[in-house]
Design a protein around this nucleic acid. Structure first.
Lengths: 341, 341
DNA sequence: CTGAAAGCGCTTACAG
DNA sequence: CTGAAAGCGCTTACAG
């Protein structure tokens, strides 16, 4: 690979001038610019991104830090990433998919991240990724509330999870449901905590007592049960224990599908016997299932776009006003999976 | 941020020794190691990844180059990326989502990529990304065949697209279909060309003449029609032109859904009136639609895993034998969307 | 508008 | 097992 010295020599100018022609940080005469460009073309020269980063302290990449391990992108993440990549590219930034430990200890050999900022997906309680980012002085935005003792607050883009659970419960209870089973996300995720609290509140508001086995948490991604989360729980609670359940709230579409399988295996029907509500689903898919699923439109793509924009503000790459805590609105999209009792 | 000199000074050793404690490239005495680690902890020191990369010429990141513009990840890409990220992390590599122009001209300010290698998704004819990678001497693997005049061949992971189209046509023709409309991927993609050729061959094999309007290509992502590809074509050909069509092969699930909408709007049913076959779909979703879709299992996650592994071989990060052209097998998964005439 | 020189924060032969 | 010094390929004040 040709380097800047080669071009400078061939064009008969100094390295600084070559640098300048590419970065355009100070004016250059037309003749010199052309000589440099010509020499670069001949030598197939392209500036070395790493060397540039070392001095400018900018990598022009943002990290999307996802929990380490057998993490699986869902349809929700898919749309989220679409939003992130598109918006980041508008600012000239690339996106680094970064698997950082959420709970594990950092290894001493872990080098500082070659990123200018980060978006933390699905924060957990005492999220180690957030401590790491904080310690390393890397600006970051979280998608979801944080509960870290070392880091008090951070710019956050989030849905109004409490409101969402209230809306869902009001919706179901309004249809006459009092026996609602909630298949929540992983217990360590802050979103689960926000949801759980609101779930309790909503039930209490309607004077419904929460019975045992009506709240479950998605197992760790390392667990064997991860991919089938919802199946066992539904079978056991409804089928074996004979617990009275008329509605199920499922964290995401995968969970909803698992629950659907269980319901079918038990010999019950949706929505005649059991109503099903999905929180994080892909709208285009939800309309296609049998029956079409009723669920929440969380606007995952918009979450992605706004989290990038917030981060860009933090990096000084985006002008204008902004606020540190953005809430993305969400609405119920009705299918045919919830019926009135 | 503390740097290596600070640690060296505090620990009373040379920079080289500090470097060595972190890289472990040569043995270090226990006492020195401990002194360095202690000093690092006190100063909150982490090696600078960029500076390290500049001298080692390794970034420990691979690029996933996706076409520039309004690109949308589909369920297929989603699973593909899952495979890529998981396998890359096994080798200590991160994944950079890179939007490079597929057809556009490179800007002179484009710096060399801070990646050690790249995976090129959905290559097109004369793919500019491939020329760029080639010119910059960056090892790459393509997912799909390449047709570039400047680059003769490249390590490739692919499905057997010709075989797939033959299988699909045999399957449909075996069910009595002779009027098959094919909603192919974008015309510039090499996969489309492979499929088209095989589609023609398969029809010819069964002495079926290809009629006009029976082959369509997905518009560019920049087109307004991108998201609804399949709807207009189906409505026009079957509804308005009254062309006899008994089966449709759809590129991916989004296309299949659009076709389903059109079929419904025309007043026809699946599979009674029209059979529908989807090539790139998400299996867990395909089982859930109404009716369940019949389609191909392309093993997108396995495509991702194998493309990373092939690239790792190219980078010398993976030992053992390997071949430059890997074919991932695919099988027909039956739903209820194709019927016998 | 252009050049010479220092420096970004590491790693790596080369000695010892 | 450890150190001193050169060098990775750029950018950036500082002069002119």
């Amino acid at each position: 690979m040709a380097k800047i010295d080669d071009v400078a020599r061939l064009a008969g100018v100094s390295k600084g001038t070559v640098s300048n022609v590419f970065s355009q940080k100070r004016p250059a005469s037309k003749t010199v610019t052309e000589r440099v460009l010509k020499a670069s073309r001949e030598l197939n020269y392209v500036p070395n991104h790493i060397a540039r980063s070392l001095v400018t302290k900018k990598t022009m990449a943002i990290g999307l830090t996802i929990p380490h391990g057998n993490f699986f992108f869902s349809a929700f993440h898919n749309q989220f990433i679409n939003g992130v990549v598109l918006e980041a590219s508008r600012f000239g930034y690339r996106v680094l998919l970064d698997m950082l430990p959420a709970q594990e200890v950092k290894t001493p050999s872990l080098a500082s991240y070659p990123i200018d900022g980060a978006i933390v997906l699905g924060p957990t309680e005492e999220d180690e990724r957030i401590n790491l980012l904080h310690q390393n002085g890397i600006p970051f935005v979280t998608v979801g509330k944080i509960f870290n003792s070392q880091v008090e607050s951070a710019p956050t883009v989030n849905n109004d999870n409490a409101r969402i659970l209230h809306d869902i419960c009001d919706y179901l209870i309004g249809k006459g449901h009092a026996n609602i089973m909630f298949l929540n996300a992983n217990e360590r995720m802050t979103v689960s905590i926000e949801r759980k609290t609101a779930f309790f509140e909503a039930l209490a508001k309607h004077r419904i007592a929460l019975r045992e086995h009506m709240l479950h948490y998605k197992p760790s991604v390392h667990s064997e049960d991860y991919l089938n989360y919802g199946y066992e729980e539904t079978r056991r609670v409804i089928g074996e224990m004979g617990e009275r359940v008329t509605a199920i709230i499922a964290d995401d579409d995968r969970t909803a599908f698992s629950a659907m399988n269980a319901i079918k295996d038990i010999g019950l029907r949706i929505p005649e016997d059991i109503s099903l509500f999905v929180i994080c689903g892909d709208l285009s898919m939800m309309h296609r299932t049998a029956p079409p699923l009723t669920g929440m439109d969380l606007q995952p793509s918009e979450l992605g776009v706004q989290s990038v924009r917030l981060l860009m503000h933090k990096l000084g790459a985006c002008e204008g006003d902004y606020q540190d805590n953005m809430v993305i609105s969400s609405t119920i999209v009705e299918g045919d999976s919830c019926s009135t009792i």
